[in-house]
C-alpha cells in the first residue's frame, strides 16, 4: 500500500495551519471560560447549599442500612405468611392507590379539556388578536410555573383536606403544561384545510373542528397520555400536604419508621407506575399506528 500523502508547500501551508490553530484557540477559550464559570457556580452553590462531604460520607452507611431496614424479612419456609404480614394492609393501601389514580385521572381529564380550549386561543395562526393571545399565553404560563403541590397547599386551605384539592391542583398544572404543548402542535398544522373551510363560509369554531382537530387529535391524545403518566407520579406525593391518596400513608410510615410499610407502599407505587407507563406506551404506539394507516 502506497503511503504517500500530498503535502502542500510550506508557503501555502502556513496560513492554513495558522487559521486552524486560531480557530481551535477560540474554541478552547470558550471551553475554558465555560469550565471556569461552571466551577465558580459549583463552589458558590456548594456554599449556599451547605454541602458537607464529611457528613455525606459518615451518613452514607445509613443510606445503605435504610434500604436494608425497609426490606422485609422473608424466609423461604414461611414465605406466604411473611408476604401476608408484609402487605398486612393491602386492601387499605389498594383503596388509597385507587384514590391516587383517580385523582390523576380526573385531574388530567379536566386539565386536558381546559388546555384544549385555551391552546387555540394561544396559537398565532388561529388567533390574530394580540391581546387575546397574550392573555391566553400568560395564563397558561402561570398555571404551569408552579408545581402542582403549591396549588395543592393553597387548595387544601380553601377546600379542606381530601382528594378534591389534589384533583384541582393537577388540573391547573396540566392545563398549563398541555396548553403550551397543544398550541405548539396547532401552530404547526397545515393551514390549507382551514383556508378552504373559511373560504366556503365556515366560522371560527367550524374551521377548528373540521380543519384543525382532525390533524392534531392523535398528537393531543398522545401528549395527554404522557401527561397522565407524569400526573400519576405527581399524585402519589400530593398526600404529603393532605391532598388525598397513598402519599399520606407513605409519609406517615416514613416519619414513624414503620420500615416494612415503607417498602410495601413503595413496591405498590413503583409497580403501579410501571404498569401505567407500559399501558400508556402501548396505547400511544397503537394510536400512532392507526394514524399511519388512516392518512
Amino acid at each position: 500500500m502506497a503511503k504517500t500523502l500530498a503535502i502542500l508547500p510550506p508557503a501555502q501551508l502556513a496560513p492554513l495551519a495558522d487559521a486552524y490553530s486560531a480557530a481551535m484557540a477560540v474554541k478552547r477559550r470558550w471551553t475554558i471560560g465555560g469550565l471556569v464559570l461552571l466551577v465558580v457556580f459549583t463552589l458558590l452553590s456548594a456554599w449556599a447549599g451547605q454541602v458537607d462531604l464529611v457528613k455525606f460520607w459518615t451518613g452514607l452507611p445509613r443510606f445503605a442500612s435504610y434500604f436494608y431496614d425497609i426490606v422485609p424479612r422473608l424466609r423461604f419456609e414461611t414465605f406466604a405468611a411473611d408476604m401476608v404480614e408484609w402487605f398486612w394492609n393491602f386492601d387499605g393501601w389498594l383503596a388509597l392507590l385507587l384514590d391516587t389514580l383517580l385523582v390523576a385521572y380526573v385531574g388530567t381529564l379536566a386539565g386536558v379539556l381546559a388546555g384544549f380550549v385555551l391552546c387555540f386561543l394561544a396559537s398565532a395562526n388561529l388567533t390574530k388578536s394580540t391581546p387575546v393571545r397574550f392573555i391566553a399565553r400568560r395564563s397558561l404560563e402561570f398555571c404551569r410555573t408552579f408545581p402542582e403541590i403549591v396549588f395543592a397547599l393553597m387548595f387544601v386551605y380553601a377546600f379542606g383536606f381530601g382528594p378534591m384539592p389534589g384533583v384541582l391542583a393537577i388540573a391547573i398544572h396540566t392545563a398549563g403544561a398541555l396548553g403550551k404543548q397543544f398550541s405548539e402542535v396547532v401552530e404547526n398544522v397545515d393551514m390549507h384545510p382551514v383556508e378552504g373551510l373559511t373560504a366556503s363560509g365556515a366560522n371560527y369554531v367550524e374551521a377548528i373542528r373540521f380543519g384543525v382537530v382532525p390533524q392534531v387529535l392523535s398528537n393531543f391524545v398522545s401528549y395527554s397520555l404522557l401527561r397522565f403518566e407524569i400526573n400519576v407520579r405527581g399524585a402519589t406525593v400530593l398526600g404529603f400536604v393532605g391532598a388525598g391518596g397513598i402519599g399520606k400513608e407513605l409519609i406517615s410510615s416514613i416519619r414513624q419508621f414503620y420500615y416494612a410499610d415503607v417498602s410495601a407502599i413503595l413496591v405498590i407505587i413503583i409497580g403501579t407506575v410501571f404498569l401505567i407507563d407500559w399501558l400508556t406506551e402501548m396505547l400511544r404506539h397503537r394510536l400512532l399506528g392507526i394514524e399511519g394507516d388512516a392518512r
Binding site: 454541602v51 458537607d52 457528613k55 435504610y66 413503595l266
Partner: peptide
C-alpha cells in the same frame, strides 16, 4: 426505571435520614 418511579420528594425524605434536614438533602 425503578429510580424514576420514586418521586423527588420521597427521595428527599430518605436522604434526610442520611444527612439530616437542610438543602444538602435536597
Amino acid at each position: 426505571d425503578t429510580i424514576r418511579g420514586v418521586d423527588t420528594l420521597i427521595w428527599a425524605l430518605i436522604w434526610i435520614n442520611v444527612v439530616g434536614l437542610g438543602p444538602f438533602a435536597g
